[in-house]
Amino acid sequence: MKIAITSTGNTPESKLDSRFGRCSYFVIYDTELKSTEYIPNPNKESLEGAGIASAKFVASRGVEKVVSGEFGFKVKELFDSLKIELIIIKEENKPVTDIIGLLNKNL
């Protein structure tokens, strides 16, 4: 299963980005391959609809779960209809590597 995590940078030590649509990077973690891919968010500076464009960005990569600090209501509704699970982490400054650890523990 693939999981997207919003990140402020492109290393395992980078912190979780609390925003979904305009996060700096998407980390795509594959739970079977244990692989991580860091992709810069092309919608970071989008004038409008960054959330929707980012939802398309991660959904088209086949993710089944998305981890971020916050999701807007338009995006929530959309992810619900796509049966993609949202995980909200309220602890700022949590490194991506810790989040991956938690995800592995809960599988």
Partner: peptide
């Protein structure tokens, strides 16, 4: 669409 008002997932 400049405004991201159309959401499309071709594969699905």
């Amino acid at each position: 669409c400049t405004y991201n008002a159309i959401f499309l997932l071709k594969e699905r």
